[in-house]
Design a protein around this nucleic acid. Structure first.
Length: 754
DNA sequence: GAGCACTGC
């Protein structure tokens, strides 16, 4: 039963005063936007108001961008509602469906709802859909917006609520037929913003780390007690800042240097970023000891995902490390770029959660005003491969004209269609093929779905491939420590797992070692393996195998009948963990080649760099096809095939396939394997075919013209040798990335979407 | 040869 304490608490929330108005608004409107700042209680209360006053409402779905939020909110609400979690109020995230036939209020991640929509585009089970945290503009949220607008046409009685924290929500209202906006006051404190007097943000790029440390020290010596949160961009600079600040703070003479020395006599410094091994440690989330000031150097993780209590001062570098996909090269670039005004406001807000605070921006007010108003939404800087496949599965034919709230560059859509054609998921007219339909079974990147199906149907190795595919679906497996001694040790320990064919097999060997250890955390720690990632991989593998069984995708092993099964461990060399003739690993690599022929690369004749090999000139062994084929690709230092790891001779590397490329200061191929060209030659014909099909998009003509221009310009530079000077390419690449970014930004500012 | 922001099915 609900006790009076809970009732009191609920009634003390600012939102309670608007209860009846909110209920009336929802009664009257089927499309509604609700603004409510953090702490208003909108996420927990509004769904309950609906539950309490709409008795014939069957099911309310509330989406969250993050799993942890879905769980904690559902917990809280089921308690307030006086029912057991999973009965009337539940949650659903990947690997954990905590709902039942009784459930009327379901918190879930936006990814779960999107996946449900591929099975049931009209979302018939729901009477109310609430998209929460809409301002975060995740890829999934944006796709749901487009779908829900269509659903509203088909099922106008479905109630659709969009909840957001920012004030710039006219856009949401405009998109949903200019629906009403309901605003709820928040419960945050005043944050005084201090801009740097004159520092231009652009000139800050090389100095913000040093300035951030200096500013932290300034606050420590001149401002009253209160913890400090510093926004930087990545692991390296965060670790460096922690060291620098620690050293400088040690030099302080508190009585002489520190203005509030009666209350501030010490400093404690923490790093926080997602890949931090010790993130679960509590100290960072606890109040520091009496007289000690806590400083946290953080990535963007502290902007939305993680809340550190007690922060009174925020220092904002003005920069963020952001991923963006370039369809012309198929590469993800991970670059440090200035943040948006919206992000700066959000960062500052972190100082006012529990009391009034102060924000120090390392850039001037003028610079702030020149920042983009909003962050470019994820959908405009991601590969749309999986999204386009899902939309096709839902029966949406014309994806180029799908109603996105902020449409992605048509290049992104066309690029996805081309890749889906190469994967044989769509046909020449852009229609979903039976294979494409089957690929939608798996919650995987379409490249990997295709490989998994091929491994079952053609190559008889789906047991092993399901493991490798799971390993490829999780975060980085290998831990790289910061201090040199441990770094060396980690490098050594990793070598045990390396397989001479490359990293797909290496990943299999890592997982098997993990399995044989009994999924042991200490086993991982001793080998510098990320236990969190490996246990996630186990979950994914189990889920994939369940889906395979359910959908008649057979699970077959390519393990060879080895006579003395127990013996292979004795026979293993010092260098490798398992490498024996245990598996017919060429089958596995052939299976991967069914997708990754698209990522075929050839080595430079004399060096250990590679070039993407486009099919058009495969028979002339010319490297020139388009810009993308000329960028020098480097093997990741973590790869078994990296020359320094001495698993293979560089000369023996000829053709490789890579799983992905990340561009930071240069293009790095991650997860690389040796292949034989004969496995792939047949598939390369698809590239030729690609030039003659329109995939349901009738403007291939224009594309071809653009392509010819590219060819010419490249050809004139590269006549001498088939290779372009690497520095030159690097510069061109950076220009291209910057130009693409500018295009994305311009499109947004020219097109405010009225 | 020296790396990788953050999520999610």
């Amino acid at each position: 039963m609900v006790n009076s304490r809970i009732i009191k608490q609920r009634e003390s929330l600012p939102i309670f005063h608007f209860r009846q108005e909110i209920i009336d608004a929802i009664k009257n409107e089927n499309l509604l936007v609700i603004i409510g700042e953090t702490g208003s209680g909108k996420t927990t209360q509004i769904p309950q108001y609906i539950l309490e006053s709409f008795e014939d409402c069957r099911l309310i779905g509330v989406t969250q961008p993050r799993r942890i939020a879905a769980i904690t909110v559902a917990n809280r609400v089921s308690e307030e509602h006086g029912t057991r979690l999973g009965s009337e109020v539940g949650y659903c995230i990947r690997f954990d469906d905590c709902t039942s036939a009784k459930t009327r209020l379901k918190y879930m991640t936006d990814g779960v709802l999107l996946r449900e929509a591929t099975l049931d585009p009209k979302l018939e089970h729901y009477d109310v859909i609430i998209i929460d945290e809409a301002h975060e503009r995740t890829l999934e949220t944006d796709v749901l917006f487009g779908l829900l607008k269509e659903t509203h046409r088909l099922r106008p009685e479905l109630k659709i609520l969009v909840m957001s924290a920012t004030l710039n929500v006219e856009k949401f209202s405009d998109f949903f037929n200019e629906c009403p906006i309901f605003s709820i006051p928040g419960r945050t404190y005043e944050v005084a913003i201090n801009h740097h007097r004159d520092a231009k943000i652009i000139s800050l790029k090389s100095t913000y780390v040093q300035r951030a440390v200096d500013t932290t020290l300034y606050i420590h010596t001149h401002e009253p007690p209160g913890d400090i949160l510093v926004f930087l961009t990545g692991q390296n600079e965060i670790e460096k800042s922690c060291r620098d600040l620690d050293n400088q703070a040690r030099e302080l003479n508190y009585r002489r240097d520190v203005q509030y020395y009666d209350e501030v006599r010490n400093l404690i410094v923490f790093p926080i970023y997602a890949s931090l091994e010790t993130m679960e440690q509590k100290a960072i989330f606890e109040d520091p000891p009496e007289g000690t000031r806590k400083v946290v150097f953080a990535t963007n993780i502290a902007q939305t995902s993680v809340t550190i209590p007690g922060i009174k001062y925020v220092i904002d570098s003005g920069y963020v490390k952001q991923k963006s996909y370039d369809p012309s090269t198929g590469m993800d670039a991970l670059l440090v770029v200035p943040i948006s005004q919206a992000a700066a406001t959000q960062r500052a807000g972190r100082a006012g959660r529990t009391a009034p605070g102060k924000a120090f921006r390392l850039y001037s007010r003028e610079s702030f005003e020149q920042l983009e108003v909003d962050t470019v939404p994820e959908i405009q800087r991601s590969s749309l491969l999986g999204t386009v496949l899902s939309l096709k599965k839902m029966g949406i034919r014309d994806i180029l004209h799908f109603e996105f709230i902020d449409p992605p560059d048509p290049m992104l859509v066309k690029n996805a269609l081309k890749q889906l054609f190469l994967l044989e998921a769509i046909d020449e007219q852009g229609m979903l093929t039976p294979l494409g339909d089957e690929m939608c079974i798996f919650p995987l990147n379409p490249f990997l779905s295709r490989v998994l199906i091929a491994s079952a149907r053609q190559f008889g190795c789906s047991r092993e491939v399901s493991t490798i595919v799971a390993m490829l679906s999780v975060e980085e497996i290998f831990i790289t420590p910061r201090d040199e001694e441990r770094l060396f040790e980690a490098d050594e320990r990793r070598k045990v797992f390396y397989h001479s064919s490359g990293d797909y097999m290496t990943l299999l060997q890592v997982f098997e070692g993990y399995r044989d250890s009994g999924y042991d955390r200490d086993w991982c720690r001793d080998r510098y393996l990320n236990h969190r990632a490996l246990s996630m991989a186990k979950n994914v593998r189990d889920q994939l195998r369940e889906l395979m069984e359910r959908h008649g995708v057979s699970i077959i092993s390519c393990r060879q009948k080895d006579n003395q099964d127990g013996d292979h461990r004795k026979k293993r060399s010092k260098q490798t963990y398992y490498e024996t003739k245990k598996y017919d690993f060429t089958k596995i690599l052939e299976a991967f080649s069914t997708s990754y022929f698209i990522h075929l690369a050839k080595r430079h004749p004399h060096r250990s760099v590679f070039y993407h090999y486009a099919s058009a000139n495969i028979h002339t062994s010319e490297m020139i096809d388009s810009n993308s084929s000329l960028l020098a690709l480097h093997i990741s230092p973590l790869s078994a095939l990296h020359p320094e790891n001495k698993i293979v001779k560089v000369d023996s590397l000829d053709w490789v396939i890579y799983h992905s490329i990340l561009y930071t200061s240069k293009a790095l191929m991650k997860v690389v394997s040796k292949v034989k060209l004969e496995w792939i030659e047949e598939k390369l014909k698809l590239f030729k075919k690609l030039e003659t099909v329109d995939l349901g998009v009738d403007d291939n003509k224009k594309d071809k013209q653009e392509k010819e221009v590219d060819d010419e310009s490249v050809d004139s530079i590269g006549k001498e040798s088939n290779y372009i000077d690497e520095e030159e390419m690097k510069r061109k690449k950076l220009e291209a990335i910057e130009a693409a970014r500018q295009r994305a930004l311009n499109r947004r500012s020219l097109n405010p979407d009225n």
